[in-house]
Design a protein around this nucleic acid. Structure first.
Lengths: 341, 341
DNA sequence: ATGAAAGCGCTAACAG
DNA sequence: CTGTTAGCGCTTTCAT
């Protein structure tokens, strides 16, 4: 440890230590322009020696460029979002862009705050979950002048571009599959959150398609907070005691579905002979269960990849006036709990 | 939409629109210093009207202050880390500090890159998982001159301050509890990752304590990648077929433990009469299982809270020369799979 | 291949 | 209570 001055080092320090002008030091550190190998060497050595860490704040202000991408999602505890996030990172890692994550807890006001905060760092682009947001948020996004990719949902009007699936269609599709298997007494379980628009749309699509076939949801139950697996178990018990005639349970996510499945198996129910089950999301966890829950893949990794790719292309001016909505098509996996015949 | 100039707005624009000097506009927008209600009003209106978003880059450069806290963790798919993260956020939300997350994938080189990248934005502090890191990373942290809180582990020497549990002690403690219940033929399952130092330390503490009592791990198995629940199931089957005499299985995390538990129950094993089980972490998920897996709480939320609090206090100069290592004490929860008597 | 000068958009410090 | 001046640490641009 040399004299602990505690003032962060600047380019000037490296310049002085190496006897090279600040400008040239800057060029070396950014690999820009031609610099002789000798000078280059000297600079690199001095920088490493001193332990110089460039000040991106100053750099960004001067260059008017920030290699940050704001990624705004509702939650980190849903597993679904870390997964899109990791797909996004995978693509961005091949560029010089860096994701910066903001979490909204499904609250529009918090989304607004987070967005404001992030935009004030002048990121190069925004990837943000969902299509529903406050007017103020929408205005900020538009005014930012940077590419905005809305993800996970395509049922609505994007500010700029959108990549996702139609949850309404997903709900309908599952309803069709269930009816086709001859199930008729259908129960639904899901989160209470009125702000989870994608879950809401799935439910709407689901009931809509049932209605078209003269079927109504026979019983339903909503939860909030707590361990989803435990909630699925409890809700299922409650519902089966209340409505023993049910022959199918549709869960708005796999976690509660898994809880329900475990409980029903424990109780010795014949699945899917006596009662069928389905969830949503295609989470990895299901593969460890004694029986495979029917579910629907939400294309999370595809969505993350595609969104990041569109953003990168936009920033490279490769995708100026392209398509605006990219809809992926989720597939049902029947597992062991949906197919009767 | 007015004339889309596309140049981001500056303080000057607000100044001109409101007829107030830039300096005063700045004061209003930051709630600093006295400004007459009238002026204040005018400025706020103009800013909102224009949709002005302050440029934090310029602000940070000028004020030499950045309200960002770098939070560096190995992974987002472990559930454990989002949980500490949320505890950290909980505390920081009551201040003007903002967490910024970086993920290392358990790779020291990536940690180094991420750290460098984050430090180059001159955050106010760093919260970083683990105590093991490259010399370069350690040097950067020291040179940064900002508070550094290392979390999750206390078996080692912190750069600055540390908050966590002793995983070595945790391993020993579990070994003791298992032996006390009379189990003797013990199998171990865990991740292959040599870079998960905390898992390694638990294992070391575990075998150490067994050895002290003349017991050796009878069989062991390591995995990597894939669904932990499924892996736990497979590994357990493999191991029980290979070593049918085992009477206890210690899992390095709850997820694989849960997989094993489900498989054993399915196969009709008497738990814990014939075979006992324990995991580690105290994950919420366990509450949804048909039987409660014995586990040990890793104090994740406490650690997150405490780390953030220390950081905040340091930045407020409230905690200059205080304690350096804060060790939490995890507790065993016996659940239904460890207590025989 | 290298250097000098002029800002980037904001805020600290000081005047009034 | 409000305004003026001088940078923050870098990069852009233009010389050399």
């Amino acid at each position: 440890m040399t004299s602990e001055n505690n003032r962060p080092l600047t380019l000037r320090d490296v310049s002085e230590a190496s006897g090279v002008s600040e400008m040239t030091v800057s060029r070396v550190l950014r690999n820009r322009g031609d610099v002789s190998a000798a000078t280059r060497q000297k600079v690199l050595e001095a920088a490493k020696q001193l332990g110089y860490v460039p000040n991106k704040i100053a750099g960004a202000l001067a260059s008017q460029r920030v290699n940050l991408v704001a990624v705004i999602i509702p939650s980190l505890s849903n597993m679904v979002f870390p997964e899109v996030l990791s797909a996004i990172s995978g693509v961005l890692e091949q560029t010089d862009l860096q994701p910066v994550v903001g979490v909204t807890d499904y609250l529009p006001e918090k989304e607004e705050r987070v967005l404001f905060e992030m935009l004030s760092w002048r990121p190069s682009g925004v990837i943000i979950a969902g299509l529903e947001r406050s007017e103020a948020s929408r205005a900020m996004l538009k005014a930012s002048g940077i590419p905005v990719i809305e993800i996970m949902d395509t049922d609505g009007t994007p500010v700029d571009a959108a990549v996702g699936i139609s949850h309404r269609r997903a709900g309908r599709q599952m309803a069709k599959a269930i009816l086709k298997q001859g199930f008729e007494n259908i129960g639904f379980m899901g989160t209470k959150m009125p702000l989870d628009h994608r879950a809401r749309k799935r439910f709407e699509g689901f009931t809509e398609e049932l209605a078209r076939n003269g079927v109504e949801v026979m019983d339903q139950e909503f939860y909030s907070g707590g361990s989803a697996l435990a909630k699925g178990r409890e809700m299922t018990r409650t519902m089966m005691e209340r409505s023993p005639d049910l022959d199918f349970l549709y869960y708005s996510n796999d976690m509660i579905g898994a809880g329900g499945l475990l409980w029903l198996m424990e109780q010795g129910w014949d699945i899917p002979g006596r009662i069928g089950l389905a969830g949503f999301n295609g989470v990895e966890l299901l593969q460890g269960l004694p029986r495979q829950l029917a579910t629907m893949d939400a294309c999370r990794r595809d969505i993350g990849r595609k969104a990041a790719q569109i953003l990168v292309d936009r920033l490279d001016d490769k995708d100026e006036g392209g398509q605006r909505i990219f809809e992926m098509t989720p597939k049902i996996s029947f597992g062991d709990t949906l197919k009767r015949y």
